[in-house]
Amino acid sequence: MNAPVEAGSPAPAGPDGPAGELTNRISHPLRPGRWLAAGVTALILAWLTWSVAVNPNLHWDIVVEYQFDRVILQGLWVTIQLTVASMVIGVVLGVVVALMQVSDSRVLRTGAVAYVWFFRGTPLLVQLIFWFNIALIFPEIGLGVPFGGPKLVTWETNALVTGFVAALLGLSINEGAYMSEIVRAGLRSVDPGQQEAAASLGMSRAKIMRRVVLPQAMRIIVPPTGNQFISMLKTTSLVSVIAGADLLTVAQRLYLTNFEVIALLIVASIWYLVLTTVASVGQYFLERRFSRGFGTTVPGNLRGRVARNLRFSGSAR
């Protein structure tokens, strides 16, 4: 039982007493600097928003007019096709090259290292221009006996390697070099003891890789792969230098005819933001799916993930 409180004794400190006030001050300290910075930031954002909204030189009526224009939507569809196809080919190449890197064969390891070294070491823009002008080196592409033997079938390179094909080759082969490092890191993250235990049970090397290693490596592979996909959405804009008919290319063609440069660039930027946001949401839920059962959670929340992916990608390619 609690001891009775004597008459005239001070009341015990509670949540509303001196101790409670001290606790509140400690847990919620005053931060005037933070409030000042937040106020200045809000003021700057409001000023920028107002300046952009009322600026007559931005021609918002042109932006609205061309946002769902047929030509813009065709370029948007090409961008989506390039992104998806390049990532699929890049992931396949990355898995193959990563398996070559962890192979016991020195020849396979050397070939994989040379591939990664070359395509990661040269700029993507240079690779795109190279593929677009491949006909200067090989005017014809054919199938036949190698080392100077007769050719059975030949095609003209200019007819075969169009702007879209050159863009697909450049983006996918370059992406394969980056994906191989991501996949290799995921494979190395799996405890080698599990592979030894599976081998002791009589499982083949291919079965161990398919049933033991890859399922566990996916939680390491998926997050950076999602980031690569989002980066690829924005990297496709480089295709404009080889007339790849992507979103930025068609926007440039339009503003060369009507001289609405800024308005058409805003139209393209809005669509890039929409694609990046949708991809960020998909990445968030995909990471949650592959993080189950490992005692880990997806870092950050959905809003933070979207905001981070909307930032400019500074990775040099």
Rank of each mutant, 00 (worst) to 15 (best):
S315V: 14
V92K: 02
K151C: 03
L275K: 03
E175I: 08
M1K: 06
A11V: 07
I182L: 12
V84T: 09
I134M: 09
G176E: 10
G295L: 11
F118K: 12
A3K: 05
H28I: 11
G295W: 06
N158F: 11
W35D: 06
F312T: 13
R25E: 14
E140P: 01
L256C: 00
A98M: 09
M1Y: 05
A135C: 04
T41P: 06
L128R: 00
L48F: 15
A19N: 01
Q228P: 00
V5L: 14
V116G: 03
P4K: 08
S172A: 12
V278Y: 01
N57P: 00
I89P: 04
I242A: 02
L168N: 00
W77F: 07
P223N: 03
V267L: 08
L256Q: 07
S231A: 14
M218L: 15
S86M: 02
Y66K: 11
V212W: 07
L302P: 06
L214A: 00
V102A: 01
R211G: 01
R305D: 10
L233W: 03
G244P: 08
P32A: 08
A114W: 05
P32D: 07
T79F: 07
F132D: 04
V153G: 05
L136C: 00
N133V: 05
V88K: 01
Q67K: 05
V183P: 01
V5R: 09
V78R: 13
S9G: 00
Q81I: 09
P146C: 13
W47M: 15
L30T: 06
Y115W: 11
G75A: 05
F259Y: 11
S27C: 04
G244M: 02
T162G: 00
V222H: 02
S189W: 08
I137R: 04
G244R: 01
S105D: 04
D104K: 11
L169W: 03
A217Q: 05
F68Q: 02
V183R: 04
P139V: 13
N301D: 15
F118P: 00
V213I: 14
L169F: 14
V153D: 07
Q67E: 09
V298M: 12
L264V: 01
R289M: 13
K151G: 07
V281W: 08
T296M: 13
L36E: 06
V222N: 02
S231K: 13
N309E: 09
V261L: 06
A316V: 13
L302N: 02
A263I: 05
A114P: 00
G163A: 04
A114M: 13
V261H: 01
D191M: 02
I182W: 04
F312Y: 14
W117V: 05
A112P: 01
S269M: 10
A279W: 01
A245N: 13
I129T: 07
P32F: 05
R292T: 06
N24E: 12
I134W: 02
Q127I: 11
A42W: 10
V126I: 15
Q228E: 14
W77V: 06
H59L: 11
V113D: 10
V298Q: 13
P32E: 05
R219H: 10
Q252G: 01
A13F: 11
A53E: 05
